[in-house]
């Protein structure tokens, strides 16, 4: 089959970007979206042009590296599927695909379809963990965790951090991402001691980054390749509300968002 790819090209954050249109012939319906870009890139390189930069790694839908908008939908039209597992048979012969990067102030563009998602790391850094140092863990069966609790924690923990929720949200909110981690750890008995602090810190960091607000419309969960439920956002708000009421005077700190990449070689 033949496809026309209309792809956003932008050399770097400071230069202006625009769409380029590339016809791609010999598209095999069994190909993944990323393999289709591979084929395009091979032909671009052979013509002496720069290939389209896009992020990818595991190509089996779990690492969370890949992702861009395909015809206005994060990760493309197939639900619960990342771009790397989206096969071309979901498109019609001769169709035009508009491909553009995640767009959010919190995800500054790096090149073409590659964006900087370190904001998500900083949210985890703020408190997305259980503070247990190596070696001081009790036996695994000391804390019983009911099957339903474990299953619900797993539902939330399935997040791959790809950023599709932010990309799909009309407000570029990171509520689903943040809520997923707060829920995963907060549901489990191991995570209870830090529940308040975790909610306060992570919500604080999320709000320090230039994400928008959640309006509970559910575009995030629809775009989420792991189908994280909207429930996690309510859980985040509940934990945040409770923690705010119970707040002791320990200071919650956040780090300033960093958008630069340059490094000096001093060690």
């Amino acid at each position: 089959m033949k496809l026309t790819l209309k792809i956003w090209r932008q050399k770097n954050r400071d230069e202006k970007g625009r769409f380029f249109t590339y016809p791609v012939e010999n598209v095999n319906p069994e190909m993944s979206m990323l393999e289709c870009l591979d084929v395009l890139n091979e032909s671009l390189i052979e013509r002496g042009e720069e290939p389209v930069a896009f992020e990818h790694d595991c190509r089996e839908g779990i690492c969370g590296s890949c992702g861009f908008m395909i015809n206005g939908v994060a990760h493309g039209p197939q639900s619960a599927t990342t771009a790397c597992q989206l096969t071309m048979r979901h498109f019609k012969d001769g169709q035009e695909l508009t491909i553009e990067p995640w767009r959010a102030a919190a995800f500054p563009l790096i090149k073409d379809l590659v964006v900087d998602r370190r904001a998500l790391d900083r949210i985890i850094q703020a408190g997305g963990y259980i503070s247990v140092s190596t070696g001081n863990a009790p036996d695994g069966n000391n804390i019983p965790v009911g099957k339903d609790i474990a299953d619900r924690a797993m539902d939330a923990a399935a997040c791959i951090g790809c950023g599709a929720c932010v990309a799909a949200c009309p407000n570029a909110s990171a509520a689903l991402f943040t809520g997923a981690k707060i829920s995963h750890l907060g549901i489990l008995p191991q995570g209870k001691p830090e529940q308040d602090r975790r909610a306060l810190s992570m919500v604080a960091q999320m709000n320090t980054e230039p994400f928008g607000s959640c309006t509970n419309i559910g575009e995030c969960t629809a775009a989420c390749p792991k189908e994280i439920p909207l429930e996690v956002i309510a859980t985040m708000n509940r934990d945040y509300r409770g923690a705010t009421c119970r707040k002791r005077d320990d200071l919650v700190q956040v780090v300033a968002p960093v958008t630069g990449w340059s490094s000096s070689s001093k060690s």
Partner: peptide, 21 residues
């Protein structure tokens, strides 16, 4: 290096400053 994260710490946004609040 600055390519990782900044060490500069800010005060956290309060209840009304946060979108959740």
């Amino acid at each position: 290096s600055t390519s990782a994260v900044a060490v500069s710490k800010h005060r956290a946004p309060g209840f009304w400053q946060s979108t959740n609040g």
